[in-house]
């Protein structure tokens, strides 16, 4: 298994938790905490899936998602969005903007794992 996940998240403990869960399942996990440079990192690393937090320092996760969907090469990339706000309008917005899946924090570890597998077809 050589699948790669790019986790864009700024909360260190959450980064640690997700990395552990996915790594244990055999995923290679890259992390990135800064919103402003996140899209470049996606384009650069070309992961199999992006786990994207909404509240990021510097730039909103929605903006990053829009850039990804607008990019010709990255347009089809699965994006799992995480948010701690969990309001309905955020979920609607995420779906409109093309998020592959939307999960509210706190999440279930198995669900995250299952979603990542499902979205990548693994």
């Amino acid at each position: 298994m050589d699948k790669r996940v790019l986790l864009i998240e700024d909360e260190p403990n959450i980064i640690e938790a997700i990395r552990f869960i996915l790594a244990r399942d055999g995923w290679r996990v890259d992390t990135h905490a800064d919103g402003t440079t996140a899209f470049d990192r996606v384009a650069e690393t070309r992961p199999d899936i992006v786990i994207l937090d909404v509240m990021l320092p510097g730039r909103s996760g929605f903006d990053i998602l829009r850039d990804i969907r607008a990019d010709a090469g990255l347009g089809a990339l699965p994006v799992l969005m995480l948010t701690a706000k969990g309001q309905v309008k955020d979920r609607d917005l995420a779906e409109r903007m093309g998020a592959s899946r939307f999960m509210a924090k706190p999440f279930s570890n198995t669900e995250v794992l299952a979603s990542v597998r499902e979205l990548t077809g693994a």
Binding site: E11, N13, I14, A17, I18, F20, I21, M55, A84, K85, G86, Q87, A104, K105, P106, F107, S108, N109, T110
Partner: peptide, 18 residues
Amino acid sequence: ISHELRTPMTSIRAFSEI
């Protein structure tokens, strides 16, 4: 508030599940 509450809860839940 939701964000501020959910963020620590996320860590707590994830690690306790682990």
